[in-house]
């Protein structure tokens, strides 16, 4: 037993063991289709997409100190753009790339205005822009299909000139694509957040004036951050379009911007793995609670209230602050 706790604590703490955990997690994700049905794979893909959205939110909220109610707008940009491209007969990769690019362009344009504000004005402006995108998706019927949305989006094959051509019509095939794309995206974000640029973002969260007085343009850095966040939301949307094969305006409604906020808060917003943990917990909680009671929203609401009032660090924060020291002290007593 001591050996087990010992390994556990060590594995939580040291860098090398973290990599082992991570490797195990990735291997698990890749062998999952071998023994699970399509429904579970579908769930995991949903988790992955929520996770990308949560990273988009957490980059702004946890790392730069900005709460956006408009991320669903960029999500919809990615989804609609990708859907349109695939409907036009393109293959998967151009669809995803264009989806992300459209979201990025939208984020640059809207971000130019948003990043001049902070706190409440930022939240309100992102809300307004998000809802503008929502009403566009609803009313620009010729392009977006109105309330019916885009229907029959093909899950096009992944081909790259004549080098490879992989069919995506089965759930497991698309699952591998989604997981690979998500993992690559998360890895890139990890690099960004540990880089000088990421340090600047965190500086802005802590003290905007201080950042400007060390010679860095706060607006420019915020705009970069906003654009990256938009791209991650867009990637989530772009991956969603071929999965659901239908995209409706509800994707861009502001209520959709709150799911990733909640997931981020659940997982822990000052923690890099927070959004992954949060998205998984969010889906599992929902899946479990819905089995027992109709009142999923009530319970979710209460969970958020408790989190905000008592522990804003979320699950990962609580883990670091309470569980880890406790495990260590147990270990010391044992030895």
């Amino acid at each position: 037993m001591t050996w087990l706790t010992n390994t556990l604590v060590l594995s939580i703490n040291s860098h090398r063991f973290k990599l082992v955990w991570l490797g195990a997690f990735i291997i698990f994700l890749f062998i999952l289709p071998l023994f699970s049905g399509d429904y579970l794979l579908y769930m995991v893909m949903q988790m992955a997409i929520l996770c990308l959205l949560s990273y988009s939110v957490n980059l702004l909220l946890g790392y730069t100190g900005l709460l956006s109610f408009g991320q669903a707008g960029f999500y919809a940009c990615g989804a609609y753009a990708c859907g349109k491209v695939l409907l036009a007969g393109a293959s998967l990769l151009p669809g995803i790339v264009i989806g992300v690019a459209v979201a990025a362009i939208a984020a640059i344009i809207l971000g130019f205005f948003c990043v001049r504000h902070t706190a409440i004005y930022f939240a309100m402006l992102t809300l307004a822009f998000g809802m503008m995108i929502f009403s566009l998706t609803q009313k620009w019927v010729n392009f977006t299909g109105g309330d019916d949305g885009l229907i029959g989006i093909p899950r096009a094959a992944l081909n790259f000139f004549y080098i490879f051509n992989i069919k995506m019509d089965t759930i497991p095939a698309y699952y591998y694509f989604v997981i690979a794309a998500t993992l690559i995206a998360i890895y890139i974000l990890y690099r960004i957040l540990n880089s000088p640029l990421g340090l600047i973002f965190q500086g802005i969260r802590d003290s905007e004036t201080r950042v400007s007085f060390v010679g860095i343009s706060v607006r420019k850095s915020r705009l970069i951050c906003f654009t990256i966040a938009g791209m991650y939301a867009g990637l989530g949307g772009a991956l969603l379009a071929p999965l659901e094969q239908t995209i409706t305006p509800s994707a861009s409604h502001w209520i959709n911007s709150t799911d990733p906020i909640i997931a981020t808060l659940l997982g822990g917003m000052y923690n890099f793995s927070g959004p992954i943990v949060g998205s998984v917990i969010y889906f599992l909680l929902k899946d479990i609670i819905v089995r027992f009671t109709m009142n999923w929203m009530l319970i979710l609401g209460i969970i958020i209230i408790i989190l905000v009032l008592t522990f804003r660090g979320g699950v990962m924060g609580a883990f670091r602050a309470y569980l880890l020291p406790w495990l260590k002290s147990r270990l010391r007593q044992g030895a």
Binding site: L61, G65, L66, L67, A119, I120, A123, T258, I261, I262, L265, N295, W296, M297, L298, L300, G301, I302, I304, I305, V308, L309, R312
Partner: peptide, 19 residues
């Protein structure tokens, strides 16, 4: 920070809707 106020009051929407 105002962000937490927004999230907290949003949670109340969920609670009231469900109630």
């Amino acid at each position: 920070p105002i962000e937490f106020q927004l999230i907290l009051t949003f949670a109340f929407i969920l609670v009231f809707d469900n109630l």
